[in-house]
């Protein structure tokens, strides 16, 4: 049986913000299906009571002193920008979201 449908692949593509051609969707469906089929072998492995290993080497988070070092100049910050206007990065018009102008703090629109 197939584990993933072309519709799911299209949903994923929206979630991941990837424009995929129909051929890509078809191919991706087959590839993901085969890979998911393969990784399913893991289900037989008993991992009850096993602490998830999120980091390869266990040690505590180091902390940095709250000190300011020189910022990038506005020019350095914007030099790689595909589109800029004055000292701003430029994007297509955003339909105003929460707080009108920001996402963190609030959730994005």
């Amino acid at each position: 049986m197939s584990r993933i449908t072309p519709e799911e692949v299209r949903e994923l593509a929206v979630l991941a913000r990837l424009a995929l051609s129909d051929q890509e969707v078809a191919r991706m469906t087959g590839d993901l299906d085969a890979i998911l089929d393969y990784v399913d072998a893991m289900r037989e492995l008993d991992t009850t009571g096993v602490e998830p290993m999120t980091h390869a080497v266990p040690f505590d988070c180091p902390l940095r002193a709250d000190q300011v070092a020189p910022s990038l100049s506005v020019e350095e910050a914007l030099r790689n920008a595909p589109r800029r206007e004055a000292s701003f990065f430029q994007v297509p018009r955003i339909v105003p979201g929460p707080g009108g102008a920001s996402s963190a703090g609030e959730d994005e629109p």
Partner: peptide
Amino acid sequence: KNLHAAAGVSFVD
């Protein structure tokens, strides 16, 4: 911060 400029574009700071 996103700034909603005119003319179909927005700015980011």
